[in-house]
Amino acid sequence: MALLEVDSVDVFYGRVRALQGVSIKVDEGEIVALIGSNGAGKTTTLRTISGLVRPARGAVRLAGKPIHTMGAEQIARMGIGHAPEGRRLFARMTVQENLDMGAYSRRDGAKIRHDFAWVYSLFPRLAERRRQLAGSLSGGEQQMVAIGRALMSRPRVLLLDEPSLGLAPILVDAIFDVIREINGEGTTILLIEQNALIALHTAARAYVLETGSVTLAGPASELLASADVQRAYLGM
């Protein structure tokens, strides 16, 4: 059984259909990538998983348990961490407080302290800036806080929406190193990435979304070799 399963989901914004019959499976311990052009519905898929939008049809299941009827905060507590598009930090709170909020629903104080140390070791830059207001950080630093905040909940599944957006190439590589490291420590990851090349090199499997539907799915290596993908997303 897949750890996370999106099953034939339709999503509407008002009358506009954003997703149609989308099905995605993520197994325990995997990195799965979601690629597709602007407006394809990638963000909407992640927002549906974490309960910020409700599917009109279909189901989302975590370890077999339906979660699409729950509130977003309940879903977060069930073990889904989400670093959303546009980072969405608490701008007038410090880096430390932002991370604190990530651990909001946890009560295991000793482990939380351990995880702070862990996140700061993943992103040493944040350790230096822990008392700085998040709104005054650079874009790359903000991205680190967004990922760190999602990690502080110790999620079973981590959803990352364009973690490399707006970052210098060297930082992109650094962030993806961290993503692999997080995954190596046992966190399952579902990842949206505009840079299809780096996404397909990081993920084990990938889905291609086009205008609200999955048009292609398979092992990353196969998609890398696919002529369609090469033409549409790799610019070859």
């Binding site: 905060e73 961490g81 959303p84 909001y104 629903s105 999602a150």
Partner: peptide
């Protein structure tokens, strides 16, 4: 802290498990 977080970004607060 939950009050401040919800004031600054409601969606993100929910993603942190805060009941709005």
């Amino acid at each position: 802290k939950a009050m401040r977080a919800s004031a600054q970004n409601r969606d993100a607060a929910q993603l942190c498990g805060i009941n709005i």
